[in-house]
Design a protein around this nucleic acid. Structure first.
Length: 422
DNA sequence: TCTGGGGTCCTAGGACCC
DNA sequence: TCTGGGGTCCTAGGACCC
């Protein structure tokens, strides 16, 4: 019995989420912008057809937006996360083993499905059911390895003749597709590797599949060796149903405008710590290490550039915002330089461990005290609808709120934002 | 004027040990 | 002239992903 993976991937996910609640823009070009309305992170098929590229800064396409009446949205992650859950739950109802790989895609174990019905039929069933239950359009690629399933999904999206579903379990079919697919479309092959592979005469996915795995491992890494095996239908990457515990928690932002005032920076860093600590407690973890970094804008060439980071370790792992804030602010003292025009800052929590098994410090006379209770209370207030509580070091709300000029309503998570039918 | 954020994994190289 | 060998652990940085 041979393994079959399906990759189910939503089409233009963020743009589709926005369209779902706006039938009036069903056929319009839509783009979704990153935090701070900075650059394009999602495009509807109409926007792609206009030639708008992924990742372009919003200000560079201002004229196009106007000329073609493109509909612009700020990212609405509350909406996208909720739609994602609905899609994933639908998949879980259709198949017992599902790995939620990202907000808009999942691997599904379809081993033995072909005893019941042709794989492609099952693929269309998945696609139709998701569309019926959630309104979301997905494509389905099926193959004996995750890397090939990814490739099958790519083809299902690219070639209309597939009608969004491709069974790539057949070896001849795999080779045919790989021969016409550029190597950079292979999962795990990015820009840098594409250039280096080209120097070795490897430009198509098939070139890579037929390359010598041991030799390429020497040139690159063990990841490349696995990719080659996967392209040849040998599955090296398992389905992972349980989300592995996080290894790091990062909170960082580019600022709407440059920061030169240390006091403001202290408030920003305090705010990032507060959010990171919240995530940490939500994961039921404590951290043993915190890093703070600040930097100028990489995009301002010819101006003074500065980038620095500092970190410290805790004798006892902690999830207490007060402890983390104190540490982060003294780290900021170390790396702060007056007169620099800062564009971005962030904090990173690492060396995460279970809350239950914190190693006590032999010399620590400080009792674990009310910290747990206080943090729990804080989290309860901030997840309730009653209001928000925060630390004085974060300052007043807030000189640095994100720019989100085109935010859609919380259609699915707030009663007041329900669309009204007249 | 205006250019995202949050992750993972792998490797090389230095520090240190016996 | 010529300066061991083998191992572990840690960190920084690079590559990738969505």
């Amino acid at each position: 019995m041979s393994t079959v993976f399906a990759l189910v991937d939503c089409n233009n996910f963020y743009a589709s989420c926005e369209k779902l609640f706006r039938p009036d823009i069903k056929h319009r070009a839509v783009v979704v912008l990153s935090n701070n309305d900075g650059c394009v992170v999602a495009r509807s098929k109409e926007a792609k057809a206009l030639g708008i590229k992924m990742g372009v800064p919003a200000f560079q396409i201002k004229d196009m937006i106007h000329k073609h009446s493109i509909v612009v949205f700020s990212s609405n992650y509350t909406l996208y996360a909720d739609m994602s859950n609905r899609v994933m739950q639908t998949l879980e109802a259709l198949a017992p083993r599902v790995e939620v790989y990202s907000i808009d895609e999942a691997f599904v174990d379809l081993t033995s499905v072909d005893r019941v019905m042709p794989l492609a039929d099952f693929g269309y069933q998945v696609k139709d059911t998701v569309a019926q239950y959630t309104g979301m359009a997905v494509c389905v690629g099926m193959a004996p390895s995750k890397t090939l399933a990814k490739l099958a999904n790519y083809a299902a999206k690219k070639y209309p003749a597939t009608r969004g579903v491709l069974d790539l379990t057949d070896k001849t079919r795999q080779r045919k597709l790989m021969a016409i697919t550029p190597v950079n479309e292979v999962w795990g092959v990015g820009g840098k590797l594409t250039t280096r592979l080209a120097a070795l005469g490897i430009t198509s996915a098939l070139d890579l599949a037929d390359a010598n795995p041991k030799q390429l491992r020497k040139h690159f890494s063990v990841v490349m060796e696995k990719t080659i095996s996967e392209l040849n239908g040998e599955s090296c990457l398992e389905l992972e149903m349980e989300a592995p515990t996080k290894q790091q928690i990062l909170c960082s932002r580019s600022f709407g405008e440059v920061v030169t005032d240390k006091h403001i920076m202290q408030q920003l860093v305090s705010g990032y710590i507060a959010r990171a600590a919240e995530k940490l407690r939500f994961e039921r973890q404590c951290c043993g290490h915190v890093q703070v970094f600040i930097r100028t804008s990489f995009f301002r060439q010819g101006t003074f550039q500065y980038s620095n980071a500092a970190s410290t370790r805790f004798p006892v792992k902690t999830d207490d915002t007060r402890v983390l804030t104190r540490a982060a602010l003294s780290l900021l003292d170390v790396i702060w330089k007056d007169g620099v025009r800062y564009a971005k800052a962030g904090v990173m929590l690492t060396e995460l461990g279970d809350q239950g098994v914190v190693q006590q410090d032999l010399f620590d006379t400080h009792k674990p005290d009310g910290s747990k209770k206080l943090m729990a209370l804080l989290d309860r207030i901030n997840t309730s609808t009653y209001g928000k509580a925060w630390f004085a070091s974060q300052g007043q709300q807030s000189p640095w709120t994100m720019k989100r000029e085109h935010l859609s309503p919380a259609y699915t998570t707030q009663w007041m934002a329900l669309p009204v039918v007249r």
